[in-house]
Design a protein around this nucleic acid. Sequence first.
DNA 1: TATTGTATATTCAACGTTGATTATTTAAGT
DNA 2: ACTTAAATAATCAACGTTGAATATACAATA
Lengths: 174, 174
Amino acid sequence: MTRLMVLGLLTYRPMSGYEMQQMLQQSQTDKWAGILPGSIYHSLKTMTADGLVEIDAVEHTGHRAKAIYKITDKGREQFFELLKSSLVEPSVAYPTTLYTAISFLELLPKEVILESINVQEKALREQYEEMKRGEEQKAAHTSLPAHIRLVFQNMYDQFEIQLRFLQKLRELYE
Amino acid sequence: MTRLMVLGLLTYRPMSGYEMQQMLQQSQTDKWAGILPGSIYHSLKTMTADGLVEIDAVEHTGHRAKAIYKITDKGREQFFELLKSSLVEPSVAYPTTLYTAISFLELLPKEVILESINVQEKALREQYEEMKRGEEQKAAHTSLPAHIRLVFQNMYDQFEIQLRFLQKLRELYE
DNA sequence: TATTGTATATTCAACGTTGATTATTTAAGT
DNA sequence: ACTTAAATAATCAACGTTGAATATACAATA
C-alpha cells in the first residue's frame, strides 16, 4: 500500500519524502493510512532500485540536502497495475486483535470484561468525534469530491458497527 | 496478535506449533486471523527467549522430532496483560488499500473503474457465502457460544457495509 | 548573543511477516 | 514391492515496518 500511495503522489508532480509526509498529514490521510516516514523512505529506495522512480533533483539548504523524486514510465505503468489490482481485491478488514481477544474472553472475570469494553467504547467515541471534526474542518476549506465523502462515510459506518458490536458484547456480561 | 493467540492456545494445554496451525484451521480462525506457520514458529522462538513459554517435551517419530511447548507463569501473566490491552484498544480496521486506491480514482477511465468494482463485488459475495457455509457447518457440530456468534455477526456486518459502499461508489460512475 | 525549541530531512537497527523450501512419515494405489 | 501423493513438522532468506536516533536550519525569547 505504501508503494501505491507514493507512486500516486508522484503521479501529480515530483516530490521529496518529507513533502509526502506533510501532504498525508495535511489531508488527514495519515489518520487512516498510517504510513510512517520510515516506510516512505524505504519505499523510495527500493523503487529507485526497481526503476519505478528516480531522483529528479537534490535541493541544498545550507548543509542539508533534500532529494526530489519523480516517477518513471515504468513506475507509471506499475502504478496503474497496482491501482487496478487494489480495486478488485476484496476489501474487508477485520479487527483481528479484538477477535482474538474475544476468543479467550471466558478466561477473564466479568468485571474486567465489562470495564475493558467501557474503556474501549470511550476511546472509540473519541476517535469518531476527532475524525468528524477533521472532515468538517477540511470540508470547510476544500469542498470534498463525492468519492472521498463516501470514504469518510464508510469510516463512520465502521465506527457505528463497532460501537453496536461492543454494546451487544456488553449485554452478554451484564 | 500472534503472541496473544499462541499464548491463549497454550493456556488450555501444552501444544506443538503444528497442532496450533491445525486448531486454527479446524476452528475456521485462520479465515480471519491469517496467522501463517512462519509467524507461529517465530513467535514460539522469541517467546522462549523471553521466558514466556518453554519446551515441555520433544516427541520423536522415527527421524522426525516435534517440540511441545508450554506456557510459563511469566507467560500467563503476559497473556492476561495482552488480553486486557487488546480489549481496550479501539478496534476499527479500515480497508486502507482500497481507500488509497480510491484517492487516485480520478486517474482511471470510468469503464475500468466500473469493471473493477464489479469484479470486487463478486469476490466479496463469494467470500461472504463461503464464510456463512463455514459457520453453519461449524454450528452444526458444536453449538457456538454467544460471544463467538457475535464475532461472526460482526464479520457479516462488515461485508454488508462494504457491499453497500461499493454500490454507492458505482453509482457515482454510472 | 546565547539558548531553547520547533521544523526540516533522513537513517538505521531491531523486529515481524511471508512464502518458498526442506525433510520425513504415512497412506493409497498399481 | 514400488511409486506417488498427502500429511506432518519446521526452517530460512528476503522483505517491509517501526520507532528511536541523528543532524541541520530557523525562529523566538531571555
